[in-house]
Design a protein around this nucleic acid. Structure first.
Lengths: 349, 349
DNA sequence: CTGAAAGCGCTTACAG
DNA sequence: CTGAAAGCGCTTACAG
């Protein structure tokens, strides 16, 4: 393994001090054009790349941001959602010449310590936290510590938090409204997400609010956990109970996939007998038969914008205002599972 | 933002030098039990976390590994495959108390420079490279530089490379054999992956070899690019040409999804009229109707094992032997698209 | 046995 | 204007 080239090597090659070489490479005006050119050429020839450790130690800046996923059961982390967020983060981080660090707590016993360490050790200048449970103390501690953090999602109880999210309540209302007004469905079932996460609560509340708005009296709510298996289990349970529904609103697409499978095996036709809608549109909803009508969550854009907000905090361009939330618009994507033609789209908002 | 606590602060609190505090925290035997306990307590109380920059600079080790994805069109990077690899990497990295850095070249103009910088700057101690094209010079340079690198996939022309992969040739042969011997399909079509990647070549060669083995005379090969759209386009093209096939072997599941859609719209029944198989099983193949018979690529395990191999190199536990390849077994997953019952499985290898 | 310097690589603030 | 020290935080090798 070749010994790495330091600034000192470059300086020696040109016959200047490493301080001068540093200034030359950063384009400092006090270095003559001639010296600057010589240093740059030597750096290129030697393949000099600044040591990130040396630079970080001196500048007190890691030029790195972390994606923190507190809840790291494989089921949760191994999801296309994170890939979308990560893609958005990478776009923003590349523009800032910063690295992206992925920090996930494989070890649940160590709790939040893993990512607290990332922040305290200054491995990253700031962090994006996503999928945090409402009562996750570590997130609260992190936010309260004043370290640059941007949350993805809605955290109404964390007043000081900077966050980026969507309006889950309204989006779910739009789905229900579609089922009621376009397809005449009124006996609706909602299968919730995890209710220790705000999205789970908000989507359920959107469902209930819409049911109220439209005067639906015959609705039911069953708790799920966002997994395909829990969507299947919820539908099985309801079928066994003998309850009859003409529409099912799943809190995400994974559960809708599980539900569709159970319905198909039970000989219940979708959308003829029952309309189905999901939420997320990260990839699955497009490939089932019928395709799943859903709300497209702009995860990549959330990741990108959250990261830009994070750099604002890190660079202190933004005064440390308390609690700023950026809300992104969502789009309802109409497919076959509700009774619309596959691949139809609602007009842009 | 609270000023970060340094070793000096901890030492001052106890009344020792920072050198002594350092030794106390690392459990060095020359520090008395009493002092050690006092330092540890002070560190806890002050919330001391070692600066990664200070430590990295001193120890010449970043305690971080990078996942490098050279070919970063969003279509390629935003794929569940990377999430699986990343999950495996995280597992191994956590066990070594190392960070995971994700480096993707959003900017194609800068070519391989982006990840060469990651390595040269010592931001990471080593890298996992995946999805590299056969003729990617940057990968060759990286491997040749002697920096710790483990490749995921097969790189027969890079003799010095350490790599982890599967046998794409044999796996594809097994799929073809299944179609021929179990379902009596003989007029097969293969839709290839990208042929500038070894997997694309190997899967095609596996198809051709199996066709030869079974004496199939009526086979065809169409080039695809692994995208859903290219799978659809390939099938449209073949349908338009009037060629008749009773089985289609797609080089991945995404293309199979696209192909299934076109077949359905054309009124061609799967598996009744034509058997379909894919490759990968990263998530899509399970949710279509019918489910797609495919080969399960153990991406998470590949990520985990590649990372363990990488730490071997970084720690020099392994002598720098030339060209070590680890081959993982794969499993054929039988679903409805070939004509088997959905959810059936081949016996473990 | 223990105290404190040296030095990892960098860049800025200071001295001349 | 320019040369070279100081110091970011850490840990090991050296001096006493």
């Amino acid at each position: 393994m070749s010994k790495s080239v330091t600034l000192k090597d470059v300086a020696a090659a040109v016959g200047v001090t490493s301080a001068a070489a540093s200034m030359a490479l950063s384009g400092h005006e006090r270095i003559s054009e001639k010296t600057r050119a010589a240093v740059k050429q030597a750096a290129d020839e030697l393949g000099y790349v600044p040591s990130s450790a040396g630079r970080a130690l001196r500048s007190q800046r890691a030029d790195a941001v972390a994606l923190i996923v507190p809840n790291s059961s494989t089921h949760v982390f191994g999801h296309l959602y994170f890939m979308h967020v990560l893609t958005g983060m990478s776009t923003a981080a590349n523009a800032h010449d910063a690295q992206v660090i992925v920090s996930t707590n494989a070890d649940t016993s160590s709790g939040g310590v893993a990512y607290e360490r990332v922040m305290r050790s200054r491995t990253a200048d700031g962090a994006i936290v996503t999928s945090a449970a409402i009562d996750d103390d570590h997130v609260q501690t992190l936010v309260a510590s004043g370290l640059p953090v941007v949350l993805i999602g809605n955290y109404p109880h964390l007043e000081r938090a900077v966050s980026v999210g969507i309006d889950d309540v309204t989006a779910t209302e739009r789905l229900v409204e579609h089922l009621v007004t376009v397809h005449g469905r009124r006996r609706l079932l909602h299968v919730t997400g995890t209710l220790d996460h705000q999205t789970g609560i908000d989507r359920r509340d959107g469902f209930l609010r819409a049911a109220d708005t439209h005067g639906l009296s015959d609705v039911a709510v069953v708790e799920g956990d966002l997994s395909e298996a829990s969507g299947a289990a919820a539908v099985e349970q309801v079928l066994a109970s003998g309850a009859e529904h003409d529409g099912i609103v799943f809190a995400n697409d994974d559960m809708a996939v599980g539900g569709l499978r159970v319905l198909r095996r039970a000989g219940i036709r979708v959308p003829d007998d029952v309309s189905v809608v999901g939420f997320d549109d990260f990839g699955l909803a497009r490939v089932t038969t019928p395709g799943i009508t859903t709300v497209r969550v702009p995860a990549e854009e959330m990741g990108r914008i959250a990261t830009e907000r994070l750099f604002d905090l890190v660079d202190r361009r933004t005064p440390s205002t308390t609690g700023q939330h950026t809300e992104l618009p969502v789009e309802v994507v109409l497919r076959g599972s509700c009774g619309c033609d596959d691949d139809a789209r609602s007009p842009a908002p």
